[in-house]
Simulated assay, not measured.
Amino acid sequence: MSHVALNLVVLHSNDLERAQRFYECLGLQFTRHRHGSGPEHLSAELGDCVFELYPLSPNSASTLGTRIGFSVPSLEPVITTLSADPSTIISPPQDSPWGRRAVVSDPDGHRIELVQA
């Protein structure tokens, strides 16, 4: 049986800079990229996976229904930083079978599950 691993996640955003600031609160570090004549976008390497933010254009499909999760070293400081905008916190930190977790909303409305590593 072959090994299957996730290597790319792409979300579309109405405002790349605003989305970048949000995801940087989680600890991601972005670089700007452009492939050929495609749009400029942001890319962050997370181990073997690349997380990219592309601008939402009239021709691109919405990724709003996509839910993703990140493991963060410490959940409380992230939640404290994100709490500046109370509408960001969907489900506050609580213990679960998967560890301490919370659900937040990024600036575009994507739901993001955070689990303390």
Results as ranks from 00 to 15, higher is better:
Gly47Pro: 02
Cys49Asn: 09
Leu42Asp: 03
Cys49Phe: 10
Ile90Arg: 13
Gly109Val: 07
Ala102Val: 05
Ser62Lys: 12
Ser43His: 10
Val50Pro: 01
Arg18Asn: 12
Val78Met: 06
Glu52Met: 15
Asp108Phe: 03
Thr31Tyr: 02
Thr80Pro: 01
His33Ala: 01
His33Gln: 14
Gly65Met: 09
Glu113Pro: 01
Gln116Trp: 06
Arg100Val: 08
Thr31Arg: 13
His35Tyr: 15
Ser62Ile: 08
Ile68Tyr: 08
Arg101Thr: 14
Arg32Tyr: 08
Ala44Asn: 09
Val78Gln: 06
Pro92Phe: 06
Arg101Ser: 14
Gln20Ile: 01
Leu42Ser: 04
Thr66Ala: 10
Leu56Pro: 01
His110Asn: 07
Tyr54Lys: 06
Ile90Gly: 00
Gly27Asp: 09
Thr81Arg: 15
Leu53Phe: 08
Ser57Ala: 05
Pro86Trp: 06
Arg101Glu: 14
Arg21Trp: 00
Gly36Asn: 14
Ile79Trp: 00
Pro97Leu: 12
Thr81Ile: 13
Val103Asn: 05
Glu76Ile: 14
Arg18Glu: 13
Leu53Glu: 03
Glu76His: 11
Ala61Glu: 15
Ser71Ile: 01
Val103Cys: 06
Glu52Gln: 15
Asp48Pro: 00
Phe22Lys: 00
Arg34Ala: 13
Cys25Met: 12
Pro39Ser: 13
Ser74Phe: 00
Leu56Ala: 10
Phe51Glu: 10
Pro92Asn: 02
Gly99Ala: 06
Asp95Gly: 10
His41Pro: 00
Leu42Lys: 02
Thr66Tyr: 02
Pro77Ala: 12
Leu56Asn: 04
Pro73Asp: 12
Ala102Ile: 02
Phe22Val: 05
Pro39Arg: 11
Pro58Asp: 10
Pro77Asp: 12
Ser43Asn: 11
Pro77Met: 12
Phe51Trp: 11
Leu46Val: 15
Asp108Asn: 03
Val72Asp: 01
Pro73Glu: 09
Phe30Ile: 08
Gln94Glu: 12
Pro55Gln: 05
